[in-house]
């Protein structure tokens, strides 16, 4: 039992080390040769929505979910913060800075830091600390708190990116009723199901983590996407091999 734990730990460490090496190498290569991604309609529409935000002087709302940074859902929260930073840069030419709502306190603080940094980089001196908000500590209170900005603060695009549950349907539904564009993604399967039914565009599965690469956030994002593909094929091979070995009675 202990031996298996050690073996599993070593395998996991090897995977992490391999991934890190690949990412580092590919990021250097990608810096010279930017990759081309398959078309995702959700990101195409997000680009248009961001352009419309800048054009008509409306506001972008990014909801980061409730993924705590010390939880497994923290990865989706970090992905949301990454896309928040990129979108804040893109909309810095607009009249109004984006709003970030979150259901985790630490995530709210990080969203404030992200928006402040984006504002400083774009030369905006009047950064509003209330742009990064904690709207609730329970899923439905968070969703209820994220709804008023969509309705009251001239939001024309809502991006849900992070860890959400089924309560995300309330947010996307209000976005639809307010005739605002909604792009939703979550690492939660139940949330993905309701998002598929309620949001205008949905990212399924690991597409959430590809958002940074599609938003041109840098070579590391592109290389991390390539690493994901490599690891996915590796996982497929391992599963198929394990199934064959199991069927053969070896395992």
């Amino acid at each position: 039992m202990i031996g298996n734990e050690i073996i599993l730990g070593l395998v996991a460490f090897g995977v992490v080390f391999l991934s890190a090496g690949l990412m580092l190498a590919l990021s250097i290569l990608r810096a010279k040769n930017p990759p081309s991604f398959r078309s995702l309609p959700a990101f195409d529409r997000l680009r248009r929505a961001v352009g419309r935000v800048v054009e008509d002087g409306s506001r972008l709302h990014v909801s980061l979910g409730r993924g705590g940074l010390v939880t497994p859902q923290g990865a989706s929260a970090l992905a949301g913060l990454s896309i928040l930073r990129r979108l804040a840069d893109l909309t810095s030419a607009g009249d109004k800075p984006p709003i970030a709502t979150s259901g985790d306190a630490a995530l709210a603080l990080l969203s404030q830091a992200t928006l402040q940094e984006a504002a400083e980089n774009s030369g905006q001196l009047d950064y509003d600390p209330s742009a990064g908000r904690l709207t609730g500590l329970t899923p439905f209170s968070y969703a209820a708190g994220a709804i008023p900005p969509i309705r009251d603060e001239n939001v024309s695009a809502t991006v849900l990116m992070g860890n959400f549950g089924i309560e995300a349907a309330l947010i996307t539904d209000v976005a639809n009723r307010s005739n605002t564009f909604s792009l939703a993604s979550s690492d939660n399967l139940a949330a993905q199901a309701v998002m598929y039914a309620t949001a205008q565009e949905t990212l399924i599965g690991e597409e959430l983590f590809a958002a940074g690469a599609y938003a041109d956030s840098g070579p590391f994002h592109a290389s991390s996407l390539t690493v994901q593909d490599i690891l996915r094929w590796l996982a497929i091979a391992v599963m198929l091999g394990g199934a064959l070995l199991k069927a053969a009675g070896i395992l």
Partner: peptide, 9 residues
């Protein structure tokens, strides 16, 4: 729990 992630954790 109502959240699979919590159960998994």
């Amino acid at each position: 729990t109502d959240n699979a992630d919590n159960g998994r954790i």
